[in-house]
Amino acid sequence: MNVLDQSQLIQLRAALETQLAALSRTDAPQSADGTRDLPVSEVETSPADKATVRLLNDLALEAAGHHVARMQVLRRALAKFEDGSYGLCEECGDGIGFLRLEARPEAHLCIGCQTRLEKR
């Protein structure tokens, strides 16, 4: 049973959509073949410079991975509105409190289940 009222659901959905829109605007550019462009291209330089370029590219790829993962989490939370399961804990099925969802609208576990998960 969902413990959120309609105005709270509207507020939380808007927050998720705003976050997703912000991430979509900052999405890393893609090349024509759909792959991500590396931010720093390698040029013939010293080994130390090449290592720095590789490190910068690795960091950029890792950040892009986090970016994509965050967008997936937000999309998953928005999809829960469609099936009516938004605001329900995926572990125990109880309602997730509004204050928790207000702080983290993408939360999928209640405080109790999240605490148990983190202690494992």
Rank of each mutant, 00 (worst) to 15 (best):
L4C: 07
L9E: 02
Q11E: 15
L12W: 03
R13N: 03
R13T: 04
A14G: 01
A14T: 10
A14D: 05
A15H: 02
L16Y: 08
E17G: 03
T18R: 14
A21N: 08
A21K: 13
A22D: 12
A22H: 10
S24N: 15
R25K: 11
D27I: 07
D27C: 04
A28K: 11
A28W: 14
A28Q: 12
A28C: 06
P29R: 05
Q30L: 13
A32F: 09
A32H: 11
D33F: 01
T35V: 04
T35Q: 14
T35I: 00
D37Q: 14
S41G: 06
E42S: 13
E42K: 13
E42M: 09
V43W: 05
E44N: 12
P47K: 00
D49M: 13
K50H: 13
T52P: 00
T52W: 13
V53F: 08
L55P: 00
L55T: 12
L56Q: 15
L56R: 15
N57E: 01
L59I: 03
A60E: 11
L61D: 12
E62Q: 13
A63Y: 01
G65L: 13
H66N: 15
H67Q: 11
Q72T: 13
V73L: 13
L74K: 09
R75L: 04
R76A: 10
L78F: 03
L78V: 00
L78Y: 05
K80V: 00
E82G: 04
D83Q: 01
G84Y: 07
S85Y: 01
Y86F: 15
L88K: 10
E90K: 08
E90N: 06
G93V: 05
G93H: 05
G93M: 04
G93E: 00
I96K: 01
L99S: 11
E102Y: 06
A103E: 08
R104G: 01
R104N: 09
E106F: 05
A107M: 02
H108K: 01
H108F: 09
I111E: 11
G112Q: 10
C113N: 05
Q114T: 00
R116K: 13
E118T: 07
E118K: 03
R120M: 08
